[in-house]
Computed example of a mutant assay.
Amino acid sequence: MTNNYQGKIITLWLVFLLGILFHTQLGLMPLFHGLSVIESQKATSMNQISSIMWLMLGFFTIPILAIIATVFTANRRYRVIHFGLTIFYSILNLAHLVLDLLLPQVIWYQITLMVILFLIGLLLNLVAFQWMKAPIKNHLGDLRS
Rank of each mutant, 00 (worst) to 15 (best):
N125D: 07
N93T: 08
R77W: 13
L143R: 10
F60P: 03
K133V: 03
E39C: 11
L35N: 15
F118A: 04
Y89W: 01
I91A: 06
L113E: 04
Y89F: 10
L92Y: 11
N75R: 11
S90N: 11
G121L: 00
F83Q: 02
H139F: 14
I38V: 13
L123P: 04
V127R: 00
L117D: 01
T73R: 14
L124W: 00
A66I: 06
L126W: 08
H96C: 01
T86P: 00
L101P: 03
L26N: 14
G19I: 04
I91D: 01
V37L: 09
I107S: 06
A66N: 07
A74C: 11
T73M: 12
G7Q: 08
W13K: 10
N138Q: 00
L101N: 11
L31W: 13
L12E: 00
L113H: 02
V71W: 15
V115Y: 02
D142K: 15
L103E: 15
M29G: 14
M53W: 13
F88K: 02
P63L: 04
L140H: 11
G141P: 01
L140K: 15
F60R: 05
L126R: 12
I9M: 01
M1W: 05
M53S: 15
P135M: 02
L35F: 15
M53V: 15
N3L: 12
A66L: 08
Q130E: 06
R144T: 14
L143E: 13
S40N: 15
L92H: 09
L65F: 12
K42W: 12
I107T: 08
T73V: 13
Y89D: 01
S90I: 03
W13P: 03
L21S: 14
L26W: 13
K133M: 05
L35G: 12
S51Y: 14
W13G: 01
T70G: 06
R79T: 02
K8I: 08
L28C: 11
T70K: 00
L103F: 10
F72Y: 14
L97D: 01
L126N: 11
V71Y: 13
Y109P: 04
L102K: 07
L124M: 05
T44L: 15
Q110N: 12
L99I: 11
H33N: 15
F59N: 10
A74E: 13
V115R: 01
V106Q: 03
T61D: 15
D142T: 10
R76F: 08
T70A: 03
R79L: 01
S90M: 07
F16V: 06
Y5N: 03
W131R: 00
W108V: 09
